[in-house]
Amino acid sequence: MGHIPSSQTGAGVMSVLRTDRLCRSFGNLVVTRDLSLEVQRGERHIIIGPNGAGKTSLANQIGGQLRPSSGRIFLEDVDITGQSPDRINRLGIARTFQKNNLFPNLSILENLRLAVQARRGHTLNCVRPVAHYSAVLDRARELAAIVHIEGEGSRLVRHLSYGEQRQLEIGMALASEPKLLLLDEPTSGMSPLETQRMIELIRDLPSDLAILMIEHDMKVVFSLADRVTVLYYGEALASGTCAEVQASARVREVYLGMAG
């Protein structure tokens, strides 16, 4: 495990995440084509693109849910291509899902507790009740506060509002104490008010955390992005700051033009 802390190799020089000529196809359908992108420490890197551009397929390859056909993925120079999702999480990438993917029949705190427990161990203990691990429980409560979920932690997740469930998604990912946070459309299906709250939530996350985020809502993109990459049929059409991407004629033509 050749993991080197970034401070020793010069912060800012080495990227947290790097994909190298990533390709993935299903039969004749190419969903990721020669994609090379980087996310720096503390950077908010947002992937946009029309439906079917291969955004979620990209997230699934980085998160380990989908194996790339070719190309490599590096997390701080550790090759994580094709690793299992749990291993990728332990190596430092935590993700959220486009469709809420929680434990609906368990409580808010139990959801977070399971995620914290994966990070903080004790999981093989089969004698001591979970209630005695106060540090784990405290961390779960702290996470609930970080993602702005208020009220009784013993509520079942299936009884939460949709927006709260989206927030919990992020809390679960943060529990893994990741180097890279991978957010798959955190605001999808949200009302404008909920979206605004989500923007604030993401903005308040630690500034040195690298975030790779897939987003549809341009308002979110303009409020958060340090860097935007436009995907179109699996290919990176353009990559740069918001202004640079907006200025790109190709992007206007195929993406912003279509979005109206």
Binding site: G63, G64, Q65, S84, P85, D86, N89, R90, A94, R95, F97, N101, L102, F103, P104, N105, L106, L114, A115, A118, R119, T123, M172, A173, A175, S176
Partner: peptide
């Protein structure tokens, strides 16, 4: 309850 999510949170 949710095997896929257990993987994604690192179990």
């Amino acid at each position: 309850e949710n095997e896929g999510r257990m993987l994604a949170i690192g179990h």
